[in-house]
Structure formats: C-alpha cells, structure tokens
C-alpha cells in the first residue's frame, strides 16, 4: 500500500501557466488544465463530510495500491473542478471501485479500452444537479463532467493508472476522461435501478466497468420487441469482450421514450433482460471459429456448433436503467468482461 505524504508547493500567483506547468512537470492530471488544490479549497471540499475523519482510509486502489483517504479524494475533487455537494458521490464511487468484484487491478491494467462508468441514482443526483435529461452522457453539465473527471484523476494519481505504466490500454478511450451519468428517475417506469438490485437508500451510485456507449437508434417502432431487436443487434458484435467472456454484463441505458414503449406494453426490467438474453445470440460454431480462448460457463462449452449462444451467460447480467431526454436514442455499454458492477449507498 502506498500512502502519499502531503506536500505543499508554493506557486507565484502571477501566472496560471506556471501552475499548469507544475502539474505537467509532476505528471499530474489528464492533460486538461486543473484547479489548484489550495488548503482552503480542500478544506471546503472536506466540509461536505462534516465531522468525519479526513484521513480515514476509504480505499486502496490497484495497481499501485495507493491509499485514498477523504483528504486525498478531496484534493483530486478540487483539481477536477467539483463542488462540495458532489463530494459524497465521489467518495462513494471510490468505495464502490475498491469492491473486489470490480477487479480494479485488471480494469486499470488491461489493454482493453475499459473505463468505469459512474451512474448516480436518487436524491443525490437531484441535489447535486447531475444531468439525467438531454445530453446526459455529456457534455455541458458541471456535476457529471467534474465528478467523472475526479474519478479518473484518482485512478491516475492514486491507483497509478497512468498510460504506459499502470494503464496498458492499446488505444485508450474518450470515456477515460470523464464517464458519469445520472439515472432519470422521473422517467423510469420501473422505479430506480438501485432499488432493483436491493439498495433501498434514497441515494446510491453504481460503477460498471465497460466501453464507451454504443448507440441504438429506433425512431419508428411502437412495439417493445422491434426496439429491443435493435438493442440486441447492437449487443451482438464480435469485437466486444462479452463475446468470448460469458460472465460479462451489459448496461442498457434506455431513453425515456423507448422505456415508455416497453412499459406501456407491460414489460418489466426482467422481461426486457430475458428478451435480450434470447435475442442477443450468436452461432456457437462461429464463436468457436472467432475465439480460440473462450471464458465461457461450463455448460456453454457443451453446446453443439449448430446451437446458438447468448452474448452473456444469464439474463441477470443484462442491467436496465433509464437516462436521457426527448428523442429515440438509447445505448448499450458492453463490459470489459472480468468484472461485475457494484451499487452502493451514498455515504459521506
């Protein structure tokens, strides 16, 4: 474990350039200008945690196994441009990232383009002005942009996920700059996602480690099956890690209009997941031809070449939530594969 010793740097106030040059020289940041984490700003950020210990260890983050305390998280939150009201969301996101099922060592070190998607649920999304409407995945909203960016800065500075050393991603991804969205609870016909996975607190966050969103466009369908056939088609692609790794999840971010069409025909979240499980399939023989190495469930290895196989091993791996505004574009977020999503309550 690496606990970084606090250091104070004195910067002449006269030049913003000098400050940014210091960040670059130290190898800090994501390449974009950052806010100086002065003592006052860090203390203001920590005020969101009230009297809780600023030096309490929240997480140890691999591959560097750096220690994230509230203070260290606050420093990165200031650098990313967060406001104090976003701080509990960020602290909770870091807690979720350190859950063993996330497999953060693999997520950070793989050659894949994976980035942790942070989904904000419930009251915290409203209170923090997170965008769950038009343009929810960005750009343009301070809360989404800066909280997502702070997650990345912490992965870089604390976890050591630096391209070339701790992050071996072959091409990287724009989702590695900032990847945060809020659930559109008001437009979700099935209630909140967090509650569907057993988290009944008024606010929660989910971390899903996957690719950047893949668009699903359907302007004309009035039946759920027609919309979901297009979702299944987007899920069914040989290039995704889900193809050879059966434990991989999918997050399906339905826009409110697609969700409404499904719901108005009586379809629940699990109906949608079951349908997609049965429709997002490939031929087993073709899959064997495409991938010599297959991380499949034992029963899947017994399938005949003429059988079909789903892109994931069970319907429960297909997760449905609602986000976005008017219009008929949904998206899917395939998984890195060797990881499971985690949902936790928001705690300061």
């Amino acid at each position: 474990m690496s606990l970084d010793t606090p250091q104070i740097f004195k910067i002449p106030d006269s030049s913003e350039r000098e400050l940014q040059d210091l960040f670059l020289e130290k190898g800090w940041g994501d390449g974009l200008p950052m806010v100086a984490p002065t003592r006052d700003r860090v203390e203001e950020m920590l005020s969101a945690s009230k009297d809780l210990d600023p030096d309490e260890v929240i997480a140890s983050l691999p591959p560097r196994d750096g220690i994230a305390t509230r203070r260290i998280i606050a420093v990165n939150a200031v650098m990313a441009g967060c406001k104090p009201e976003h701080f509990p969301v960020l602290v909770s996101a870091i807690r979720a990232l350190s859950a063993p099922e996330i497999n953060l060592r693999g997520v950070n070190a793989t050659t894949h383009c994976v980035a942790p998607l942070l989904i904000v649920h419930g009251k915290a999304a409203r209170d923090g002005d997170y965008n769950s409407g038009l343009g929810a995945f960005g750009p343009g909203n301070l809360a989404n942009a800066t909280t997502g960016r702070a997650v990345r800065l912490i992965l870089h500075h604390v976890a050591g996920a630096t391209p070339g050393t701790g992050d071996a991603s072959t091409q990287g991804s724009p989702a590695k700059y900032s990847y945060c969205v809020a659930e559109n609870l008001d437009s979700s016909p099935w209630g909140g996602y967090a509650r569907s996975v057993g988290i009944n607190d008024e606010s929660a966050v989910t971390i899903h480690c996957g690719e950047a969103p893949h668009n699903v466009h359907d302007m004309e369908s009035s039946e759920p099956s027609a919309i979901l056939d297009k979702v299944a088609s987007t899920m069914t692609s040989w290039g995704q890690n889900n193809a050879p790794i059966s434990q991989g999840e999918y997050f399906i971010a339905l826009c409110p209009e697609h969700a409404s069409t499904c719901s108005s025909h009586g379809w629940s979240r699990s109906d949608i997941a079951s349908y997609l499980f049965n429709k997002a399939t490939v031929n087993v023989g073709e899959a064997r031809k495409a991938f010599e190495l297959r991380a499949w469930a034992p029963w899947q290895h017994a399938l005949e070449d003429t059988d079909t196989i789903s892109m994931t091993e069970k319907p429960e791996n297909i997760k449905i939530f609602v986000t976005g505004g008017a219009g008929k574009h949904s998206c899917i977020i395939p998984s890195w594969g060797m990881t499971k999503s985690v949902t936790v309550p928001i705690l300061p």
Partner: peptide, 14 residues
C-alpha cells in the same frame, strides 16, 4: 511491451 507495467505491478505488490 509490458515490461514497465509488470515492474509497476510487482512493486505495488511489494
């Protein structure tokens, strides 16, 4: 190509 990454992971694990 992954020598540096391997060294970093090894070091982080002590």
């Amino acid at each position: 190509s992954f020598r540096k990454l391997t060294e970093q992971v090894a070091a982080s694990l002590g």
